[in-house]
Design a protein around this nucleic acid. Structure first.
Length: 111
DNA sequence: GCGGTGACTGACA
DNA sequence: CTGTCAGCCACCG
């Protein structure tokens, strides 16, 4: 099958992130089967327009907000995370310890 | 085909 | 802890 739609996979992974938890761009890309495409993930979220996507649950590898501190998007992401019970400290959040297998199963199925 | 760009990452000082 | 450097890959003119 020509899985050229990496976008669909990335969107699926982000949409599979449970509320109250956060993920890194690299982790999302890896879970989507596209290692090294962290930058692509960022572009997808930025260009994505359609169903509500929990893009605010995606942060940098350090658990820091990808936007510039004080920016409108930065404040919005922080507000959304806090609204879901995520503790945000100095624009930083605590990354959840979830293996790729767990994410993979959440997307493709329990098999 | 080429060079510049970016919601990135890891290593190093 | 912060800041800099090089590597990475997809997109655009």
């Amino acid at each position: 099958m020509s899985g050229s739609d990496g976008r669909a996979r990335i969107v699926a992974v982000v949409a599979a992130i449970p509320a109250g938890q956060v993920r890194g761009y690299g982790q999302v890309a890896l879970a989507a089967g596209l290692p090294g495409r962290a930058r692509w993930v960022a572009r997808i979220l930025a260009e994505h327009d359609g169903p509500a996507l929990p893009w605010h649950r995606v942060v940098r590898s350090d658990g820091r907000i990808a936007f510039a501190p004080g920016s409108a998007q930065w404040r919005e992401q922080v507000a959304r995370l806090q609204g879901e019970g995520v503790t945000v400290k100095s624009g930083r959040v605590k990354l959840a310890n979830a293996s790729v297998s767990d994410v993979d199963r959440a997307i493709w199925g329990p098999e």
